[in-house]
Amino acid sequence: MSEKIKHYSGEALKSADIEEGRVPTEKCRPKAKFAWSAGMAMSRFLEELKNGKIIATTCNKCKRIMVPPRIYCENCFKPTDGWTYVKDIGTINTYSVSYLAADATRLKEPIIVAIIDLDGASESMGIIHKLGEIDPKEVKFGMKVKAVWKPPEERVGAITDIKYFKPIKEEKP
């Protein structure tokens, strides 16, 4: 009972206690390697990226066009019904200017990451990717962006076959 408890257990250590060996420890790096099966939907998606195209699947019941594609509709819980291409153009749904790499080390030049709602897919069907050819200060919500692909001979069938998305000027009518 909080105010009735006089002592809380735990002996805090400092990083230096570990680094300078003042406290004995055991170290370990697990050697686990994986081969994740891309499965039915994602295998086709990756194959199409190699062709410079983004493919989605459709559900005839809820009428959604879903990207990334999936073999079942999680809303209707039925198999999806067909494949369809969506555009490599989309709208910035939200974004962040990141100074962090995957391992939490700091980046000198930030990278811009965004969720991009792709044209031709149902509402809010975003994918996450990076933005390029733009100053972080210029990025805006709702901005139109287009995929910048690697040259065909460099594509391997990976999400990184798209280098990044860059802003496109909206044509005035």
Binding site: F34, A38, L46, N93, T94, V113
Partner: peptide
């Protein structure tokens, strides 16, 4: 942090160099 990155989709998201903070940043910004 590195253990956190393994929660992401290994095919679509991890190759981008995902950091856990990103998803919070994207949500917070939205």
């Amino acid at each position: 942090q590195y253990a956190f990155t393994t929660i992401f989709d290994p095919i679509l998201e991890r190759p981008l160099g995902m950091n856990l903070i990103w998803i919070f940043a994207l949500e917070m910004h939205r």
